[in-house]
């Protein structure tokens, strides 16, 4: 698959996802609720390698930081198209998000909740505490798999 066709497939899936969300979500939920339904990627017409996802994540994360790093509103930052596309990468992006958190707190908490479907840092008061909890959850989960 060429980068161009991958991008087209990703955009097609995003349109489908947005249509689905608009059709099925109650209208009065908060902004974050609109992006927090665990994504069903079983129908995604795109087979991506982990390397593809890592490269795409880095590209999107850099763009997102450039466009929103000076903003304080998490809702505004989460609604940025690059952040939405990171969420759209689905479960394969979780290791990328966790690796980023190992380097220090970063605002991937909403993305993790959206992709994983559970807030494993619920109750954490600070970004550092939430980052530690997500990393601990990931390490425990992956060690269980081994």
């Amino acid at each position: 698959m060429t980068p161009g066709s991958a991008a087209r497939a990703t955009r097609a899936w995003e349109v489908e996802r947005d249509t689905w969300q608009e059709a099925e979500r109650p209208p009065l939920l908060g902004l974050i609720d609109r992006v927090e339904r665990p994504a069903d990627h079983s129908h995604t017409p795109l087979a991506r390698t982990d390397e593809d996802v890592q490269a795409r994540f880095k590209e999107l994360a850099d763009q997102w930081l450039t466009e929103t790093g000076h903003l304080s509103s998490i809702s505004q930052r989460v609604l940025n198209p690059s952040y939405q596309q990171i969420i759209g990468l689905g479960p394969q992006v979780v290791p990328c998000l966790i690796e980023s958190l190992r380097e220090g707190p970063q605002h991937w908490f909403s993305a993790l909740v959206a992709v994983v479907g559970v807030d494993h840092a619920f109750g954490a008061r600070t970004p550092s505490e939430a980052a530690s909890r997500w990393v601990a959850w990931f390490d425990a989960t992956t060690s269980d798999d081994e």
Partner: peptide
């Protein structure tokens, strides 16, 4: 200087990491 204030929430519950 030890918290990120945000009302961001999931179904009315705060998302971990924000105050």
């Amino acid at each position: 200087d030890d918290a990120w204030w945000s009302p961001v929430n999931r179904a009315g519950l705060p998302i971990g990491g924000y105050y």
